[in-house]
């Protein structure tokens, strides 16, 4: 086995060992740090709970619909913003500064409009996702290499051919990268919203476990959420890499928390 994996596995073993040892030593309360083995054991309990399917569905629904709306708003807005040098210079700082604000504080306003159900979580996910998507789309459109456009024009490309064969492949990578960032923040935003005001969803369930002092279950559920989000992110990165194998990944700055 090579050195890198030895180190990684070694670190994982040390981490889990410390966790287990500390939890079993009696130095910390069971309600603070349940042993790793217990947490892993509870994964099955958590997954087989009657509400689990409903919670997963609600959270996925909020995230997917939220990102879709965020993209529907963010991409055209980004394209508009990136379409001229002036608009870009005018709007970029505004979008940048508002984008760097914790969007979750808009949640109470969304609750006013959309109620305490899934809709307000869809809303907060959509707003969170729209920013990185818009910023990346605008940047992508701005940074289409003018030489490529000139070259294609001189080779006789029509306007529609220009869009299809030059602009689209040029902006695809950054736009998809923006969508991936958007998905990441949407997950955080929706689930964070659920922990605040909701009656269904994975975030809601985690807080339920917390307030009922079912700490091992809470750890297990958060572990599931964390690994799930990581897998989604990883899968998406892979897809994007395959779709845009011809260009380097360049991602505009965008806060990846809600």
């Amino acid at each position: 086995m090579n050195r890198v994996w030895t180190l990684r596995i070694g670190a994982a073993v040390v981490f889990l060992g410390l966790w287990e040892g500390l939890a079993r030593s009696g130095l910390v309360l069971d309600t603070v740090l349940p042993p790793a083995t217990e947490v892993f054991g509870r994964i099955q309990d958590v997954v087989t709970q009657s509400d689990f399917g409903q919670d997963v569905y609600a959270s996925l629904y909020e995230v997917v619909i939220g990102v879709a709306i965020g993209a529907l708003v963010g991409m055209p807005f980004g394209a508009f913003m990136g379409s001229s040098r002036y608009l870009y210079r005018l709007l970029d700082p505004l979008v940048y500064y508002v984008g760097a604000v914790p969007k979750i504080v808009l949640f109470p306003i969304l609750i006013l409009f959309l109620g305490t159900g899934v809709e307000s979580k869809v809303g907060i996910a959509a707003i969170s996702a729209a920013f990185p998507i818009a910023i990346n789309t605008a940047l992508a459109v701005q940074e289409v290499n003018p030489m490529h456009v000139k070259a294609a024009k001189s080779l006789g490309a029509s306007r529609s051919q220009l869009y299809r064969f030059v602009y689209t492949p040029a902006i695809l990578g950054p736009v998809l990268a923006g969508a991936r960032l958007g998905l990441g923040v949407a997950i955080t935003a929706a689930l964070l919203g659920e922990t605040k005001v909701a009656n269904v969803g994975l975030g809601f369930r985690a807080i339920e476990y917390y307030s009922r002092l079912q700490i091992a279950e809470m750890y297990a559920l958060l572990l599931i959420v964390f690994v799930g989000a990581a897998l989604i992110n990883l899968g998406l990165s892979g897809l994007i890499r395959r779709a845009t194998h011809y260009q380097q990944q360049r991602v505009g700055a965008a806060a990846s928390v809600a």
């Binding site: 603070v32 922990t195 975030g203 809470m218 959420v225 964390f226």
Partner: peptide
């Protein structure tokens, strides 16, 4: 890098517990 793009904030109940 992977952790950077994960929803660390969602782990907040653990911080509350500890």
């Amino acid at each position: 890098a992977a952790l950077f793009s994960s929803p660390i904030v969602l782990l907040y109940p653990i911080f509350l517990v500890i």
